[in-house]
Structure formats: structure tokens, C-alpha cells
Nucleic acid binder design. Structure first.
Lengths: 246, 246
DNA sequence: TCAAAAGTGTTTCTTTTACACCCATGC
DNA sequence: GCATGGGTGTAAAAGAAACACTTTTGA
């Protein structure tokens, strides 16, 4: 395989994949071969491929699911994102083949995407440079390669920003969920507690939820009602956003 | 000059430069040589140059001012952004030299930036591919090359989004301005009218304005007070934003 | 003196905030 | 029975919206 032939030079995509599980926000990370470091899933962009499609491809390969909520959030274009010593170690550890050395020594810019996925649907799969692919809580991120910590930080900012604008939950929660689960998701993303009753009233006022006739039984306490998102109204709010300041 | 030597392959930046004049929002555009089409100011990224710095460089060259408010807003990465027929016409019209043909026939991705500038400070300067550099009202955009119309559309969306989050005016208005000028700016960006009195109350409540002891005389009517932005408080709000929904 | 823009204030309505109380369930 | 989470309601405060009246200015 000739990277120079196949891929757009000096360009990669990186996907910060968010999932919600055990009341925690997690990201899907790759454990690099022969290294203690981890990485955000990424890949190169084919010469005849939309950049967005490259991100979709990476996402599908790592999670084994399709039709994922995916948004570009930033281009990381600093000239010193990588350096030779980093590539030296990759070659030395046989993570990359020596004849691909010059490809990896290019200066790379990378397009950051963030994805929202339903945790339980994902089957994590490592790529050829990694030995494991795992969910890692945002509160416990290990040592990451290059500027990948910054990429995650920016992705979280973008996600929080998105939360201010419109609804989020549909992509992170299962089809049916309780109001507390939805609220916990919001609290986790925002990093602050929200009043249980006021949250419910406000969320219902958006008109994007359908209250189901079912309750979640088996819990230790009173069985809470289940809700689902009203596709049509949810999508409207996604586009138009909630109320503006002006 | 050898483009392949100097520049990062397949990568450009485009800057949508917003200015406010005559109660209109305008963008700085380039009239292409030997063509009826216009373009958003742009350029290539040097191999050892931050992408942000490339945008700053372009901006400085076109406007002849420095320290401009500039933000990256989107990477345009579709595989069919350009096509051969476009480059054919450029070569035919001698806009680009024939020996640079292969550089321009690459597939390019471009990073979109938007800039906010004080209209009166700008001295528009065309680049080597254009014959004129002019302010054009957003309501009257001429035929543009490639996907530049889409780039402007997205830039405007980004600007509106920014307006929801925090203050904007400081970069678009002169140091001293009337409340009506500020309101008109907001109305222009948002594309809707705002109540004069409620706008004033709300804007003052943010605490980012200093009311000056001067008035703007010479107008046809009662002389309005002048305001200026309080640097410190303005910058705070820029970072923290106005009130959130949650 | 009059039209048009600007300064200032008030009333009303809506939204947000901060609570209280009762209900269901497992231990 | 009691601790815990869940359902629902309400009073008070804050904020937004709609609107009226007065002042100043150039023509």
C-alpha cells in the first residue's frame, strides 16, 4: 500500500467518540502498540473522498455501527503538532513500517470530529496501530499522543456548546429512557447539578419528548416513567435551536 | 516561486471579512482577473506555518490592518469543491501561469475563517489573481467562484451563533458609538428588528458598556449619547458568554 | 412648529427559581 | 417502617415584552 498514492497529503481526521454509561461520559480510545500512550481514533483522508466521509469511515471501523451523529468541530493546524522524535519512537517500536517513514514525517493537520453514540451498540475495534480499543471515562483520561488531549478538550467544549443550542440526548441514550437518565446526561456533560423538577418542566416545555405509558421496573424505588424523543419535533429543535437571547 | 516547495499541499485558507458601514453588513471580496466572478480572500498555507497564521497573513495583506478578530469556523473538505474546468478557465485567462497548472489541479481543502473589522480602518488591496478588492453588501453578493457562496453563508451562520453566545460589537464598530448604531448592527446581523428600549436595557444589563459624557452632535435630531466597550468586562463576557439556557 | 430620533419609565406577562408534599419500592 | 428516588404543585423573584410620554434637534 502506497500512502502517497492513496491519501491526501498531510491531512488526517480524528474522532472523539462520546458515549454515556454508568452515569459517566466516556470516550472511545485506542491503546497504541508497544507504547504506554493512547490515542483518539483517527485516519487519513483518501484523495477522492470527502473529509466528512473519511471521518464516517473511521467511526464505522472503530465502533461497527453506522448512521452516527457526527460533527466537525475544529481544524488543528499548528505547525508543531507532531515532531520527529515522536515518529522516531513509532518506527523504533515497529508501530509503523520503516518504508512509510517519510509519510509519517510529513507535517500533518487534522480535522477534529466529535461523535455521539449509543454506548451499548458499540463494538470497539482497534486499528492496525493499536492493540486495544476501549471506553475511557472523561474523568480518567490516560497519557495521550501528540495533541490528542487538547483535541478531547476542544471536543467537550463543542459538545457543551451544542447543548446550549439545542437538544442532545437522542444520540447518546437508548430509545427509551427516564427523565433522571436524561438529566444525569446533561449534568455530566455540563459538569454541574440541575434541579430535578425544574429540569423536567423545562425539558417538557420544549415539546420534544413523548411520555410513554411504561415505567422502568426493577429499580430500587418508585418506578419512573419512560420517555422517548419525538423524532419530528426533536429534529426541528436540532435545526432551529432553543430560544435565543435576542 | 515553487508552490510545491513552499506550501502545504492541497490546503488553503479563506477569510470572510465582515465590516459594518452605512447600516449594512459587508464582506470584502476580490474581483478575479479576466473573469466576471468574485472570490473570498484566501491563500495557501506555508509548510512551516500555523494554519491560523496563514489566515492572519491573508487578512493583513488584504486589509492592511493587524490585530484583527479572527476565528476559524469550518473546514470545507468536499472532494468536488473544485473541478478541472475551473482550472482550465484560469489557465486560459492567464490568471495563473501554465507551469503552476499541476499545483492548482490538486484537490484542495480549505479552512474557512471569519474576521470582524472596523470598516474605516481597512485599506482594501487585491492579490495577484484579482484586479480589485472591494466591500460588497451581504444583500448584494455577485457571482462567486467555486463554493465561495457557501463559505459566506456558513460564515454568517457562525457569526449569528457567536452573537447568541456573547458580545460582538467591539470588532465591528469604532471605539465610540451610539446605542442605535450598536442595535442596528445587531439587527443587521440577525436580520430582524429589535425593540429600541428593551435592547438598550438588556445591553446595559450585561455591564460591558461605558456611557460617555459626550453626545454625537451634527445629527438631524436629538444628539444621542456615545458609548464605548469596557475592555475588561467585554473580554470576560467574550469568554464566559451570556447566560446559558441551563 | 413639526417630524423624527433619543431619553426614560411603567405595566403586564412569562419564565425561572426555590421550595414542599405525597407516592412507590426494596431492604 | 424507613430511606430513597420519583411524581406533581406552588409562591416568590426575576426577566422579557409591550407600550407612553417627554426632550432635543434641524429643517
Amino acid at each position: 500500500m502506497d500512502y502517497f498514492e492513496l491519501y491526501h497529503p498531510g491531512l488526517s481526521v480524528d474522532c472523539v467518540i462520546f458515549g454515556f454509561h454508568d452515569n459517566e461520559l466516556k470516550v472511545l480510545l485506542l491503546k497504541m502498540k508497544n507504547s504506554k500512550q493512547w490515542a483518539v481514533p483517527g485516519g487519513f483522508v483518501k484523495k477522492q473522498e470527502d473529509v466528512d466521509d473519511a471521518a464516517i469511515r473511521v467511526l464505522k471501523e472503530r465502533t461497527n455501527i453506522e448512521d452516527i451523529y457526527l460533527r466537525q468541530f475544529h481544524l488543528f493546524g499548528q505547525k508543531n503538532r507532531s515532531d520527529d522524535s515522536y515518529v522516531d519512537s513509532l518506527v523504533q517500536d515497529h508501530v509503523i513500517r520503516e518504508d512509510m517513514d517519510s509519510w509519517f514525517r510529513q507535517r500533518f493537520i487534522t480535522v477534529g470530529y466529535f461523535a455521539l453514540v449509543e454506548f451499548s451498540k458499540v463494538t470497539p475495534s482497534p486499528d492496525q496501530n493499536s492493540e486495544r480499543c476501549e471506553w475511557v471515562p472523561l474523568t480518567n483520561i490516560p497519557d495521550l499522543i501528540l495533541d490528542h488531549q487538547e483535541i478531547i478538550n476542544e471536543a467537550l467544549k463543542a459538545l457543551r456548546n451544542k447543548l446550549r443550542f439545542g437538544p442532545v440526548g437522542k444520540n447518546l441514550l437508548p430509545p427509551k429512557f427516564t427523565m433522571t437518565e436524561l438529566r444525569t446526561l446533561y449534568e455530566t456533560i455540563l459538569g454541574e447539578e440541575l434541579d430535578r423538577r425544574n429540569f423536567q418542566r423545562k425539558m417538557l416545555s420544549f415539546g420534544i419528548l413523548d411520555k410513554l405509558d411504561e415505567t422502568r421496573k426493577g429499580g430500587a424505588h418508585k418506578a419512573p416513567f419512560l420517555y422517548s424523543f419525538n423524532e419530528e419535533k426533536y429534529n426541528q429543535k436540532l435545526i432551529k435551536g432553543f430560544d435565543t437571547i435576542w
